[in-house]
Nucleic acid binder design. Structure first.
Length: 416
DNA sequence: TCTGGGGTCCTAGGACCC
DNA sequence: TCTGGGGTCCTAGGACCC
């Protein structure tokens, strides 16, 4: 048996941990640049705030109902996520961290609702984060179970322990809410009269194979309790690493884009070294503002193949800038840019070249030193000159909460 | 005025080989 | 009249997830 533990309204709950004043009040968290809504407390959901809604369209609602608005604070969410995972790890040895707010726990040794309740209470007590738990034979069924736990139980825990219960639940579970069924697939299914998860489970598997391919077949099997997606106990190395941002204000000049791309490329290189990987491609993309259809639209993308795998900041930045120069046009106004490093290979297993002109040993030492200083003294304390100092393109974050758990200067004060 | 960021997997089709 | 059969590898783009 597998238990899926899912944090409730995770980002909104994180904001509440050190700020009890906003308990039971509507809370929303905005995306980068304070653009659109990416998390909502239950109170905000009740007020009709929709996921992905642009913040500027909510101005009246926010004022009328005193909604508490926050910019994303990933330092805080990432740290609280680690704490939640650590607490679960004290109860269950085998687990897979699936996302920032979810983990699959291996309950093969012993599965019961009580075990779920105990974990839920411990996480709440130790971290302040409320979670829901769904227990079932497969991941897909556990997803359904956690859905039910959130919406229809007081305890926040739901377990599928007999076939009749599964049938009854699937019969009232909308097919588009299944894990792996997105908008397109839902449309296809509804067109042939499949509206519930039970109808999907019982439809002809040859039809599923022809129309939805292997993923559809796996989904169907998982609904019958046959495991197609086992709990992954080892973390896989990332194949691609991407750093991309929309700009606080739009950019036209190449020199400013170079600063942004240089900075994103350096971030990618740092992430690569953290993963102990090297990349063999560096890609750059630009985008104009799609919400201004009257303006000229241009979304170029350039992939550069490297001769040798690398995770050296200076080298990756050099390639990224080269890519940028090859796609830049001066008659467009840009809103977003990004760098993707891809085709990663494990560091230390890279093929060397006879004709390499770079002193890689020296570069490696520089990178190690820079990473060390930046991790001790703060992000970007040392950066490359090409990244600039103005940071005109930086994010808009007007409602940022303190980094309560990761910065000494912002630690919570208690007055006695 | 203002609309996010970071991933994975699968498939079709092109290019190439004998 | 009539134009093969069997592969591999790579890439772009779609669909999905949080």
């Amino acid at each position: 048996m597998i238990a899926l533990v899912d944090c409730n309204n995770f980002y909104a709950s994180c904001e509440r941990v050190f700020n009890p004043k906003i308990d039971k009040k509507p809370v929303i968290v905005l995306s980068n640049n304070d653009g659109c809504v990416i998390a909502r407390s239950n109170e905000a959901k009740t007020l009709g705030v929709k996921m992905g809604h642009p913040a500027f369209k909510l101005k009246n609602l926010i004022e009328e109902y005193n909604i508490n608005v926050f910019s994303t604070n990933f330092a805080l969410y990432g740290d609280l996520s680690k704490r939640v995972m650590n607490v679960m790890n004290t109860e269950v040895e085998k687990m897979e961290i699936y996302s920032i707010d979810e983990a699959f726990l291996d309950f093969t040794d012993y599965a019961s609702k009580e075990r779920g309740v105990a974990i839920r209470e411990k996480v709440k007590k130790w971290t302040g984060i409320p979670v829901s738990v769904g227990i079932a034979q497969t991941k897909v069924l556990a997803k359904v179970a956690v859905h039910i736990a959130k919406k229809h139980t007081k305890a926040g825990v739901f377990m599928f322990d007999d076939e009749n219960l599964i049938r009854r639940a699937l019969n009232v579970f909308a097919v588009e809410d299944l894990w792996g069924v997105g908008a397109k697939t839902a449309q296809k299914l509804k067109a042939v009269g499949i509206h519930t998860a039970l109808q999907f489970r019982e439809c002809d598997s040859n039809w599923v194979n022809r129309n939805l391919s292997v993923n559809g077949v796996r989904l169907q099997k998982e609904l019958f309790g046959e495991v197609c997606y086992p709990v992954e106990l080892t973390r896989k190395r990332k194949q691609n690493i991407c750093t991309a941002r929309s700009f606080g204000s739009e950019i036209k000049k190449l020199s400013k884009l170079k600063e942004a791309i240089g900075s994103y490329a350096n971030t990618c290189a740092t992430k690569l070294r953290k993963e102990k990987s090297c990349c063999t491609t560096v890609s750059v993309f630009l985008s104009t503002n799609p919400f201004k259809p009257q303006a000229k639209q241009y979304t170029p993308y350039k992939v550069i193949q490297l001769n040798l795998p690398t995770n050296d900041s200076m080298e990756i930045v050099k390639f990224a800038i080269k890519g940028l120069e090859s796609i830049y046009r001066n008659d467009c106004i840009y809103k977003k840019a990004g760098v993707i490093v891809g085709r990663t290979v494990p560091q230390g297993q890279t093929q060397l070249s006879l004709f390499d002109s770079l002193d890689r040993g020296k570069r490696k030492n520089i990178n190690i030193a820079v990473d060390k200083v930046n991790s001790l003294m703060g992000k970007n304390k040392i950066h490359l000159a090409v990244e600039g100092n103005g940071r005109m393109w930086k994010l808009k974050q007007e409602r940022l909460s303190p980094c309560y758990t990761t910065r000494f200067a912002e630690i919570l004060e208690v007055r006695m």
